[in-house]
Structures are given as C-alpha cells and as structure tokens.
Nucleic acid binder design. Sequence first.
DNA 1: ACCGATAGGAAACAATGTAACACTATCCGC
DNA 2: GCGGATAGTGTTACATTGTTTCCTATCGGT
Lengths: 167, 167
Amino acid sequence: MRRPQSAPPFPAPGHDHGPCVKETLARAAEAFEANGLRLTPLRRRVLEEVAASHHAIGAYEILERLARKETTRMAPISVYRALEALLDAGVVHRLESRNAYFACHARHDHSGARRIVLACERCATVAEVAAPVAFDAIDGAASDAGFRSTRALVEVAGLCTACAAAA
Amino acid sequence: MRRPQSAPPFPAPGHDHGPCVKETLARAAEAFEANGLRLTPLRRRVLEEVAASHHAIGAYEILERLARKETTRMAPISVYRALEALLDAGVVHRLESRNAYFACHARHDHSGARRIVLACERCATVAEVAAPVAFDAIDGAASDAGFRSTRALVEVAGLCTACAAAA
DNA sequence: ACCGATAGGAAACAATGTAACACTATCCGC
DNA sequence: GCGGATAGTGTTACATTGTTTCCTATCGGT
Ligand SMILES: [Zn+2]
Ligand SMILES: [Zn+2]
Ligand SMILES: [Zn+2]
Ligand SMILES: [Zn+2]
C-alpha cells in the first residue's frame, strides 16, 4: 500500500464550503503581506467570487456577479488586474483550456507548481493534485526530444467521484 | 540505454520543410477521404498556411495571410470552420495555452492522442512527442484523487535544442 | 427529380483580454 | 511632516478570439 493517505480528495458535492473560503482568504492575506502587497477590498471581492465555489469561472462572470451585488459596475480591466494580482499571489489559478479562473483551496507550496488540474466534465468542479511522477515523466519525454522544459501545463478532463458514481 | 532512437527530434531550424508540408497534405487528404469528407480548396489553403511552419498560428493570422495572397478576404467563420474540420481530421492541433493552431507533422495514430506538446519560448516552434509514461502517471494521480480521466492536456514551455544552445 | 448530408458566403454579434492616461493611496527615508 | 517612489484604481477606448443566424450551393444516392 504505497498510496499516501494525505492525498487530497476531490471536493465533495455537499461539503461545508465555509471553511474553504475562509482558509483561502486567510492564505491570500498572508501571501500579499509576504510580498509587501495588499489584499485590497477590490481584490478581496474578486477572490470571494472566485472562491465561492470549486468551479472555474470566467472573468466576465465575476464582473456580472459583482455588478449584481454592488450597484456600481466595474470595468473589465479592474477584474483582470485583480485576477493578475491573485494569480501572482498563487491563490487563484487559471484553467487555460477554458479561459477561466479558480481558487486554490490547498496550502501547497506555490514555487515549482508541479500540480495537475482535474476538471469534472459533468459538475464542473476543479481540483489540483500533486503529481511529481507525472512531471518527472514529462520532463523526461521533453528532454528525450532535446527540449529543456521550464513549465508544464497539465489539465485533465473526466469525471469526479460523485459524478462517476451517478453515471 | 533504454531510450529508443526512434524518438522524433524537435524540428531543426534550417531543415528542408517541403516534405513536411507535402506529407501533411497527403495525410489530410487521406484522413478526410477515410471519413467520407472532402479536403476542399478552402480547407487545403488553411492547412497550407498552418503547415507552412512548425509554429502555432492564430486564426486571424491565417485569415491575414490568406487575404494577402488572394485578393478576396474571407470571413473569420470560414477559417474557423476549416480549422474545425482539420482538427477533427487530426491534421491540425490547438495550442490551448495560446489560442493558436499548429499542423501535426507526424503520422501518429490519432486515437487516444497521448502526446505532449512542446513549445519553445524563444523560437516559437512547436512539436509533439509521445509520452505514455507521463500519461500513465497523470491517470494514476487522477485516479488517486478519485477522478476518472478521459482526456489529458499537456503543454510544456521551455527551450528547444537550438535555442538552448544559443542561450 | 428529389432528398439529406456536406460545405461555405455574409453580416452581425459575443466573449475574452489590453493599452493608455490620469489620478489617488500608502509607505519610507529624511 | 515632506517628497518621492511604488502600488493601486477609474475611465475610455480598443484588440483579439470565437459564434449565431440565415441562406445558398453542391454532391451522392434513390
Ligand atoms: Zn469547498
Ligand atoms: Zn463531477
Ligand atoms: Zn518542417
Ligand atoms: Zn527554439
């Protein structure tokens, strides 16, 4: 039995999501602080929208949701700037294959980022898991082709536990 | 020495590209034929633009280049429709992390598609290489998280042989 | 001749992302 | 406290990427 039990499970459909959000907000404050930056109200509001679920959400969807709550409608660029700061802080990631953004709900060490992204095709839930072996294999395959890799993007589509069971 | 010598090298900067194009066109004709579809003039022209280099190229860049050659300027949708057919035929792939398209210059079996994409950050050349071990590791990591993967996207950024040597 | 499947033209639109410029807020050394 | 540097935001307009809708043409089989 070589599987470590510490492997983070895919987020369950009906789990208590409050702590997820709270923890993410806390980590964000910490990360900004550590870099001499600020988790401003704008950034916090954007992060709250992203972290409100375990789904990836589009920038304009964030814009819409904030507009519904806040009487004033901000410009797209404001959302993108906030997202950029959150991406840099490592508390939000981008799902490249869908032009969407999702909150990082795990306290993983942000440097290196050798994590793969799992995106359920049915419920749209997104999760990250560490996969050092996979990245080693990718680097190996790249170097066999004479390629020196600096960053690898891995996004997996499929069915999460709950959805696979329901299917 | 377990590395098979059959590993396709990254395309060299000054290689004779004529055969690459010719072969890709031939495979396209074959693939369309096999599916009861047609490699029409439009599709052929789009494919020729994509296959003209080993770079990934945007849809609107294709549009521009064809417009320069052809007096008449087609609508974006025409390019996208041609691209869709070429993607379905497996002779063109999409570089998701850059919203761009590149020709498949290898006669790999299109089913399964367990290949990773290498994109040089300096010269923009793109290549695909098989990486069954990497995909096995990805599937393993996914399944450890209770996720049943159906498709994995792997895009690696870095430096190709020539560019690494020049750096 | 007719029909369904394949292919494409035309116009408008939708979705996603940036540039440029001005202005305010905060911090830090003095 | 003052003054400059850096960080952060508002506003406007623009750039890039991709799609919807409706219609026409062509082909192959019956
Ligand atoms: Zn949660
Ligand atoms: Zn699911
Ligand atoms: Zn070539
Ligand atoms: Zn290169």
